[in-house]
Every structure is written in structure tokens, then in C-alpha cells.
Simulated scan of single mutants.
Amino acid sequence: MPSTFGGSHQTVFDFLSRSPHFIIPEYQREFSWSEDNVDQLIDDIAQGVSKLEKIQPVDDRRDSGSKFLGCIIHWDREAVSNEDFHPVTGINYISRVYELIDGQQRVSTITLLLCELYFQIERIIDRLCIPSATMVPNDLIC
């Protein structure tokens, strides 16, 4: 008989790319991490990144640069129409969701950090790219 509960260790990337459909249930407390909590998480991530050696293969870097960032408990379940998503006639965009039971503060903080990183990279690319007069308006020479 298969176990209802199971655990595994994953990279942040692997965890977040499993499914884009995370749900924070209403019974979870609001985001309440202080600046100290966020700073500690950033320090933990920076410590893991500092151990990376660029000459190592990617898989080896994942192992040597890994850092335990805490436990996350989620419930993998079928999505419920009108609760988890707004239904569109004839289309079911979401079939499964990951309901965060524990680790919501950590996952929310990592998501916010990744969004900020994305915007910072976007600003850098905008400053480095020069539009070409001979190209379609959205094409850039970088």
C-alpha cells in the first residue's frame, strides 16, 4: 500500500518549477517575516552560492553548494473549480495545486526575491541593449 506521506530534498529551482500553481490557504497567517528573518534567509542563500565553483559540472555544483533552507510541507491535490481558479467554459487551465501547509513565509520570501532579481536583470538588459533601426521594433542588439 503506498504511503500517504512522503518526503524528499529538492533544490529551490526544482521545487518551484514542479508546478506554478501554489495555493496559500486562508487559514495561513499573513506574511509576517521581519527584516531579520529575510536577512537570515538571504545570508543562507549567499553562503550556499559562495561555495559554488564555476569549473565544476552543474550537478556537482548543486551538491557542493547546497544549503538547507528549511522544511516545506504541501498538499498535492486536485484543483477545485470556483475555489482554486475561475472556470472558463470548456477550458480547465489548472488540474492540480500544491497547497502550502508549512513554509509559506519562506516560499513567499524566495518568490519575492526571485521577482526582484528578475526586475534587476531586466533593467540591466535594458541598459545594455541598443535598438536597431533595421530590425522589427521588439528586436534588440545585445
Rank of each mutant, 00 (worst) to 15 (best):
V107K: 02
V58D: 02
S8P: 03
S50P: 02
Q105H: 13
L112I: 04
F119V: 03
P20W: 01
L113V: 02
M1Y: 13
N138M: 06
Q104C: 05
E53C: 04
Q120W: 02
Q105G: 05
E30Y: 12
D139Q: 06
W75E: 00
V88G: 01
D60M: 05
T111N: 08
N37K: 15
C142F: 02
D43L: 11
I101H: 09
L114R: 07
V88P: 00
I55E: 07
T11L: 06
I91P: 01
F5A: 06
Q47P: 02
L100A: 14
N82S: 07
I45S: 10
G6K: 14
D43F: 09
S66Y: 02
E122W: 09
N37V: 02
P137L: 08
L69F: 03
F119C: 05
I121L: 15
P131H: 01
I130P: 00
I91K: 12
L114S: 11
F5Y: 13
I45R: 09
S32I: 13
R62N: 07
L128K: 05
Y27R: 11
Y98P: 06
Q105R: 03
V58T: 03
D44W: 12
T89M: 12
I42V: 15
P131M: 03
R77K: 12
V38C: 07
G7E: 05
E83K: 07
Y27E: 06
I121H: 01
